[in-house]
Computed example of a mutant assay.
Amino acid sequence: MREAADFLIQAASSGQRIVVLCHRNADPDAVASAVVLAEAMAGLGGRVKAAAADDLAAISEAVLNSFSRKIGVNPELDFDLAIFVDTSSFGHLGEFGQKLKDSGIPFAVIDHHKPVEEMRQLAKFYYVREDITSESELIYRILTEMGVKLTPDQASLLLVGVISDTGHFRFANPDTFAVVEGLLKAGADYNRALDLLKPPDDLSRRVAMLKAAGRSELQRINGRLIVFSDLGSFEGDAAGMLVRIGADVAFVGSEEKGEFRVSGRASPEFLKETGLHLGEMMEELGKQFNGSGGGHAGAASVTGKGSFEEVKKQIVKMLQKKLVKAE
């Protein structure tokens, strides 16, 4: 932690142009981490801005608007250093990631997902803590080590990130709540954070959830309930919904023009009993299907080339192998 703090302090004082960059379709945890870290480094005299690859999730735009914050998308490659947050590989940056990789611009990784050895080898600085439940929690700890005092809005933004990425604390641990206490002491507004994370009660989302339920396909593997469904939007929300109504693990995906994307969610009990790590599974699927994947033990995603049906068959094979060993 101290090493990460020292690296960021030095970078802020170096005079370099720095972009704190998060993954495509950036979620609240990603944008909160990027914005607050960029502001903190700018407060130390750095030439720093926050950015995301490709696009932001709708809920992330709403969160940032609530705090009168903005974040750039696909910034010009005119900076001297990129700092990846909530982003474990170039693949999570989409087409922009390939452009950045080809540019040769130095980059650092500060992340809480499963480590990626290629990135460790290429990065100017690499700090990954998979045991930490959200990127916002990791950024809070590092900023505390740096001696940065958060504003109430910054603390609230990070609290939104923590709540979001822990599934409203379903995946939290004791250290998570210690960070929440620190954020509240810094002025974070807990009720405001909860209100911002309420799912939009719009017709399109309700229809999507009903479609996902109606299209669901149930398979039993060693007594476990595995559910698949296809949907063109809200895939992560739909997978989470299927777990909440009874699935041990759910995968919701779509395909278009020979490419697919799949989001997976698993219940905490299932993860504890089986040792399954969805992030590892999605990373392997990404390699098999010429794409990229990763994430947490209980929430992960993958994109690649091929059909959703092909991916489903491979997921079943992987689960059969894993669950037979777990029994």
Rank of each mutant, 00 (worst) to 15 (best):
S164L: 01
A26V: 10
D237Y: 10
A178K: 11
A42Y: 07
F7E: 03
L158G: 01
V48A: 02
R129D: 01
S267T: 04
K101H: 05
G275I: 05
E3F: 05
E280A: 15
F90K: 01
E309F: 14
E39P: 02
E117R: 07
Q288Y: 06
P268L: 07
R244V: 04
L157I: 04
D111I: 02
D102R: 11
V302A: 11
R170P: 04
D131M: 09
K322M: 15
N222L: 12
Q10A: 15
Q314E: 13
M282R: 00
F270K: 02
E130W: 07
S136L: 10
E235G: 00
K272S: 14
R244T: 10
Q16K: 15
P174T: 03
R69I: 14
R120W: 06
S307A: 12
D248E: 11
L77P: 01
Q314P: 00
L93V: 05
L278A: 02
Q16F: 04
Q320H: 12
D237S: 12
V179W: 06
G253F: 06
T274S: 06
G45F: 15
P199F: 06
V243A: 13
K149H: 14
V262S: 00
E235S: 02
A238N: 03
V116C: 02
A155H: 08
L225E: 14
G97W: 04
I163Y: 11
R215W: 13
D54N: 10
K149G: 11
V31L: 06
L210E: 13
H113E: 07
K317E: 15
V324C: 12
M241I: 11
Y127W: 15
H112G: 00
A299V: 02
H112L: 03
D165V: 02
G43N: 05
K312A: 07
D131C: 04
E309W: 14
D27W: 04
A108F: 00
D80W: 05
G253I: 08
V35P: 01
G286A: 11
G232M: 12
I83K: 08
I245G: 06
A188C: 08
G246C: 06
F7I: 10
S60L: 12
S233T: 10
P75I: 09
A300Y: 02
M281E: 01
K211P: 05
E256I: 11
A250D: 02
E256A: 14
A5R: 06
L56M: 13
G182A: 08
R220Q: 13
F289G: 01
M281Y: 00
D165Y: 10
G279S: 03
L323I: 08
Y190N: 09
G275P: 04
E280Y: 10
M318A: 14
